[in-house]
Design a protein around this nucleic acid. Structure first.
Lengths: 191, 191
DNA sequence: CGATTATGTAACCAGTGGTTACATTGATTT
DNA sequence: AAATCAATGTAACCACTGGTTACATAATCG
């Protein structure tokens, strides 16, 4: 038996949410299920997260950081010439391994996009994507190719996890196809 | 006052759903709200759609068809040389005008992806995207460039409507940036 | 006209996000 | 050490949701 007080319920809830979300799906995730998994009443959860939105925001922030870490690792392992490609492949790899966490990071309607932690996490992620010029899209012509690269990678990730591509292909083969496909973009960056 | 029987409740519900979804968001859309908007009890709706999933599937099918139509129009208006670019821009344009309908078409977790109407509609859409080789990704090397193009366009659409890009830029300017960005891909297709 | 069938309503169920009043605990102060 | 107080838990409740069932009404067809 545990004590009346939990210890670190806030973190426990996040952990349970992270585990549950890949089980039951992003839309079916409920605060009550997280609370029950943590062995606690659902109202206890609201003591640590004002509402569901806040829980999801916290999870999104953590996921964005995980993603940035993952990409960072892969990026540092690659040699300079293939870095852009490897970053893209890591991006897609994270999405395919954690589809719902990946979706959560970008579904700004169900989270608090103005949250400071979330913004910091996504900024870290954007920085990891090469150069932060990807986000400054207004009058910087260089960013147009960066936007193109990001879009291609993001699009592949989305199409892949949403099942819009042929779905009876094993993940490894898919990854190889993505790699080949992305490679074709090289002439764009050569210029 | 209307008669006891509605006339074409199935279609009315779809219409109301289509209108409501862009108002309240995809996740907040409820069968009860659609039914009320159609002036009918929520249980009447279940007479025409077995469950929410079926309603959303029907709406997704209709949206995919609308999208295919829209792209088809734009495509036929363009001259041969710029067709690929125009198709892509139409794809993004539809997404930005109807973000939630666009999302619905690709959110296969909340719809019945094996539904025949849905499959027919998405196949039409895929065909409209140039050549249907986009979907046969296994051992057809040509499709790698098609996949790249689709991904780039799809990624731009998603990033744009999800607010991951700089959001204080008016839509028209965004579209111009997208056009410029996509244009950079030309050398890939020249080969 | 009468029976059948399609389509609507009313009342109900379990589950959800969220709130409020109350109970329990751990830490602080004296 | 005892009293106090804020942090953290529970229980009971609310409105709403998707979904079901029994019943009422209307249209249709013999």
């Amino acid at each position: 038996m545990e004590s009346y007080h939990h210890g670190d319920l806030a973190k426990a809830l996040l952990d349970k949410a992270e585990a549950l979300v890949e089980e039951v799906g992003l839309d079916a995730l409920s605060i009550r299920a997280c609370a029950k998994a943590a062995g606690v009443t659902h109202s206890a959860a609201f003591r640590h997260y004002r509402n569901k939105r806040h829980l999801l925001t916290a999870l999104a922030s953590r996921s964005a950081n995980r993603m940035a870490d993952f990409i960072g690792e892969r990026s540092s392992q690659a040699n300079k010439s293939s870095q852009l490609l490897e970053v893209g492949m890591a991006y897609i790899g994270f999405a395919m391994t954690n589809p719902n966490l990946f979706r959560l990071v970008f579904r700004e309607e169900i989270i608090d996009a103005s949250d400071q932690n979330y913004r910091a996490a996504t900024r870290r992620l954007a920085d990891q994507l090469g150069d932060s010029r990807m986000k400054r899209t207004v009058d910087d012509p260089l960013s147009e190719t960066a936007l193109l690269a990001w879009s291609a990678v993001h699009g592949m990730a989305c199409l892949s996890i949403d099942g819009s591509l042929q779905s009876d292909v094993p993940d490894e083969n898919k990854m190889q196809i993505f790699r080949n496909s992305l490679s074709k973009m090289q002439p764009v960056f050569a210029a």
